[in-house]
Amino acid sequence: MEVRARIGWNVRRLRVERELSQDDLAYNAGIERAYVGHLERGTKNPTLDTLEKLSKALGTDIADLFIKPPEGAELLRPLKPGRKIS
């Protein structure tokens, strides 16, 4: 798995674990929602500054974005549709 895909897998894993929508994560990190989607799909190459913003918004260490997925790990299921009301 290439590094962009690994980062994308971890961003999505952490976001879903925290029950955050892409909109919520993007807002909390101060980045565009569409960019979060690109990162999760591994189609964009994030800067270190962006990774730092994401890790802070996810309440985790930046190193957690580089964790190797377990052997045979699949993509996580989407959250339920609709906006989460805080």
Rank of each mutant, 00 (worst) to 15 (best):
L65N: 01
E40Y: 01
F66L: 15
T50H: 09
G59C: 03
R41P: 02
E52N: 12
F66K: 08
E40C: 01
N45C: 02
G30W: 06
K53H: 11
Y35W: 06
T43L: 11
V36Y: 05
H38Q: 14
E52T: 10
G30A: 10
A63D: 13
L39N: 04
A63T: 13
L39E: 04
F66A: 09
G59D: 07
E52Q: 13
H38Y: 12
T43S: 15
L25M: 08
T50W: 02
L39D: 02
P46M: 08
K44R: 15
K56E: 13
E19M: 10
E40P: 00
T47S: 15
R33V: 05
E17V: 06
Q22E: 11
E52V: 10
G72T: 03
R18I: 01
T60W: 00
D61K: 13
L25V: 06
Y27H: 12
L25N: 01
G30E: 04
L58P: 07
T50M: 08
L25W: 06
A57C: 12
R18A: 10
I62W: 04
A57N: 07
T60A: 13
A29Y: 03
V36H: 03
R18Y: 00
Q22T: 07
D49W: 10
E19W: 09
S21W: 02
S55K: 06
T60Q: 05
D61P: 07
L14H: 12
L65R: 00
A29I: 09
E40V: 00
I31S: 07
L48N: 05
N28E: 13
L39F: 09
L48F: 08
D23Y: 11
L14D: 05
T50Q: 10
G59T: 02
L54Y: 02
L25T: 07
P70Y: 04
L48T: 08
E71P: 08
N45H: 09
T47L: 10
R12K: 15
R41H: 11
P69T: 10
L54F: 03
L58D: 05
Y27S: 12
Q22K: 11
A63I: 13
D23R: 12
V36C: 11
E32V: 10
R41C: 12
I67T: 11
D24Q: 15
F66T: 07
H38K: 12
I62S: 03
P46H: 11
R13C: 02
Y27G: 03
Y27M: 06
L25H: 05
E17P: 02
G42K: 05
D49V: 13
D61R: 13
L25G: 03
G37S: 13
T60C: 15
